[in-house]
């Protein structure tokens, strides 16, 4: 295809595939363990990190990585041991870190930041460095998931039983939140801070409509995530639409299709 002659389109395509892959794998846990709101809290916290990076005059993504990891741990800590209810705590972190980001960027004199790009994605400005960051972090996340596959599986299904069996569920939970934070970072350039939540939830939720087998659900989720990324990219290019939004809406259309076709909803038997 001729549009792939452009180097920026090649990079965008690689990024879309990688992000679709990583988000859908982590998204499987987000959907099954009902971490969607925690995911929203973590993703919005990345904006505080981006803002701090600008203020300090260093790489925004470089600062967003430790910043998001720290907020993810803080949200996890509150949700586990806190005296504040989990959704209230997330609501506070969510808005608080966004506000910090706005404040930080405002403090930087004469700013002309592409805020819009961080919030809603700017896939066509993906640089070679970005590709390496996405590849490195993405493979790291996938590697950890493969290494601890059965542990995350058990913990997602039944945390108390996993604890009784001697699995270190607290550490696994915080590790999962950390992986979510890294997934958010990986996705910022593609769909942006505001919309990354969609890629964490929609492909896995669509896959959940079609199967009662965990591995099949994860594989279907990856298929949907990657197809959304690639199809969304091409559609946005052809019709000159915002790429991040088009990718998210493509995923949404896939979900609606799966929801309509779901044998579960029609009460049919699905083998596990």
């Amino acid at each position: 295809m001729d549009i792939l002659e452009y180097a920026f389109m090649q990079r965008a395509l690689i990024a879309a595939v990688l992000v679709g892959l990583v988000c859908s794998v982590i998204g499987t846990y987000v959907v099954l363990k009902r971490l969607a709101f925690i995911g929203a809290g973590i993703s919005h916290s990345a904006f505080g990190g981006v803002g701090l990076g600008y203020l300090l005059g260093v790489s925004p993504i470089g600062v967003a990585i430790p910043f998001s990891l720290a907020i993810a741990m803080a949200i996890g800590w509150v949700s586990r041991r806190g005296k504040v209810s989990e959704d209230t705590a997330i609501g506070i972190f969510f808005a608080g870190t966004m506000a910090l980001g706005v404040l930080f960027i405002g403090l930087r004199e004469g700013y002309n930041v592409d805020l819009f790009g961080y919030l809603f994605g700017s896939i066509l400005s993906v640089s070679t460095t970005d590709i390496w960051i996405i590849l490195g972090l993405g493979l790291g996340v996938i590697g950890v998931v493969l290494l601890l596959f059965k542990e995350f599986f058990f913990m997602s299904f039944d945390e108390e039983m996993a604890a009784v069996s001697g699995l270190p569920v607290d550490r696994l939970y915080f590790l999962l939140l950390g992986l979510m934070a890294l997934t958010v970072i990986v996705s910022i350039k593609i769909v942006g801070i505001i919309m990354v939540e969609a890629l964490l939830v929609i492909p896995a939720a669509a896959a959940f409509q079609l199967t009662r087998n965990f591995v099949r659900m994860m594989l279907l989720s990856v298929l949907f995530g990657v197809v959304s990324g690639v199809a969304g990219l091409f559609i946005s290019y052809h019709f000159d639409l915002a790429s991040g939004a088009t990718i998210v809406l493509t995923a949404g259309a896939i979900f609606l299709l799966c929801f309509g076709l779901s044998p579960k909803r029609r009460g049919r038997r699905v083998s596990a």
Binding site: L148, F157, F208, F214, R216, M217
Partner: peptide, 25 residues
């Protein structure tokens, strides 16, 4: 306490009973 919508087969659930003995990784 169970989540009966979780995509897991009977065999997988029973196999989870082995996880503590199998060990991490």
């Amino acid at each position: 306490q169970g989540d009966w919508t979780f995509p897991v087969s009977v065999r997988d659930v029973v196999l989870m009973g082995r996880y503590g003995r199998i060990g991490l990784f």
